[in-house]
Computed example of a mutant assay.
Amino acid sequence: MELEDLGYNNALEEFKREQISESFDIGRVVTEHKERYIVKTLKGDFEGEITGNMRFTAKSREDFPAVGDWVAIRTN
Rank of each mutant, 00 (worst) to 15 (best):
L3Y: 08
L3F: 06
L3D: 09
L3M: 15
L3C: 10
E4T: 06
D5I: 00
Y8Q: 01
N10C: 01
L12N: 10
L12A: 08
E13F: 02
E13Q: 04
E14A: 02
E14N: 05
F15I: 07
F15C: 12
F15S: 06
K16L: 11
R17C: 02
R17H: 03
E18W: 01
E18F: 02
I20L: 02
I20V: 14
E22A: 10
E22Y: 07
S23H: 11
S23E: 10
S23Y: 14
F24K: 14
I26K: 06
I26L: 13
V29D: 09
V29H: 03
V30K: 14
V30Q: 05
T31F: 09
E32W: 00
E32P: 00
E32F: 02
K34M: 05
K34T: 06
K34Y: 09
E35K: 15
E35L: 15
E35D: 10
R36A: 12
R36Y: 15
R36G: 02
Y37K: 07
Y37Q: 02
I38H: 06
I38N: 08
I38W: 01
K40R: 12
K40V: 01
K40M: 10
K40G: 00
K43G: 10
K43M: 04
K43N: 12
G44V: 12
G44M: 13
G44S: 12
G44W: 13
D45Y: 04
D45N: 11
D45C: 05
F46S: 05
F46E: 04
G48C: 11
G48W: 01
G48N: 07
E49C: 13
E49T: 14
E49P: 00
E49M: 15
I50S: 00
I50Q: 03
I50R: 01
I50Y: 01
T51L: 08
T51S: 05
T51K: 05
G52F: 11
G52H: 08
M54T: 13
F56W: 04
F56Y: 09
F56S: 03
T57E: 02
T57H: 09
T57G: 04
T57Y: 08
A58S: 15
R61K: 08
R61N: 10
R61F: 09
F64S: 07
P65M: 13
V67T: 13
V67G: 03
V67I: 13
D69P: 03
D69H: 14
V71L: 01
I73W: 00
I73L: 07
R74H: 13
R74Y: 06
R74W: 00
N76Y: 08
N76P: 11
